[in-house]
Simulated scan of single mutants.
Amino acid sequence: MEVLGLSSPRPITFAEARKVIDADAHGDPDDRPHLSRVFVTPEVDGWTLVIGAWCDPRDSERHEDVLRSCKALSARYGRAQAYYYGEQGDGSAWLVAERGSVVRRYAATGEADDELLTLGDPLPQEQARRLELGLPAEGDLRTASGEQIEEWTWSAFHLAPEIAAAYGVSPFTLTRETKVRGTGVLALTSDATSHGF
């Protein structure tokens, strides 16, 4: 919480946090309160997840801050990631950092500036999916047909949960058997304090 500049933590259950974060995520994107709080999970299988729109690695206002935060967290803890996943077919984005450096940032949301966010080489999950589609694994799509590119884009729209599970823990894979240690909290972000929420 210190590295991210989070404040005013208050204990909250997973069920309560899901309702709050879902409500925030479905608010007006031009209305800043959706960036004002996050759910910081207890330790789950050795990881602490920070969940909320404020952590979106492809958000036009936040992507550079999220990049800096992941680099700082990975410098301190070894590894850190940030993900976006739109369950309604809105796409995926991922940012993987290790030991203070970015390994990969990629966005597949159908937005015109997705390509501008790309950093690093494709991850093994990306490479495998591209090979399945008959595309070059390293990511150069200049020789691909329009149909292949469309297939890749649609496939990449759904990759974030798979990549999260491969590199740490995906919120979608948490079960009653998941090892949990500590208490989750709802915390205010620096965005909340700078905008008076």
Rank of each mutant, 00 (worst) to 15 (best):
P42D: 10
L95R: 13
G146F: 01
L174T: 08
L73I: 10
A82Y: 07
G100D: 09
A17P: 07
G89F: 12
T173H: 01
H63P: 05
S194R: 13
G78R: 14
C55W: 05
G139E: 11
R99N: 11
F39A: 12
T178Y: 04
Y106A: 07
D191C: 13
A108L: 02
P9K: 07
D24I: 03
E64I: 06
G184V: 07
S155L: 00
K179Y: 10
F157P: 08
H26C: 05
E177R: 13
P9H: 01
K179C: 05
L123F: 04
E151L: 00
F39K: 07
T143V: 05
I12L: 14
Q81V: 06
T178V: 10
L49T: 10
T183I: 04
T173V: 04
F39C: 04
G184R: 14
V103I: 09
I21C: 05
G139I: 14
H34S: 03
E64F: 09
R62K: 06
T189N: 15
A15S: 07
P122V: 06
A164P: 03
E64G: 00
A160K: 09
R99D: 13
W94V: 01
D65L: 13
A166T: 14
R104K: 15
S101Q: 11
G110Q: 14
A80G: 09
F172H: 05
A166L: 02
G89A: 12
P33Y: 02
E2G: 03
G182C: 06
R76M: 09
R99V: 13
P29C: 12
T173R: 03
L119Q: 01
G134I: 02
V44G: 06
A160F: 02
A97G: 15
P161V: 05
R58I: 02
G134C: 02
Q81W: 01
A166C: 14
S60R: 15
V169R: 06
D59Y: 05
R130M: 11
V50F: 11
M1K: 01
G52R: 15
V20L: 08
A187K: 13
D56N: 09
A97M: 09
S8K: 03
A93E: 12
Y85W: 15
F197T: 06
W94H: 09
Y84P: 01
D28R: 04
V3P: 01
E162K: 14
D24W: 05
A72P: 15
G78P: 10
A112Q: 01
T153K: 02
G27S: 08
K179N: 04
V66C: 04
Q88H: 02
P29Q: 03
Y85H: 12
A187N: 09
R76I: 07
A112K: 01
F14W: 15
G78Y: 08
T153C: 00
S145H: 01
K179I: 08
R104T: 08
T193V: 12
D121V: 03
F197K: 05
P122D: 07
S155V: 00
F39H: 13
A192R: 04
G196L: 08
W152Y: 05
A165N: 14
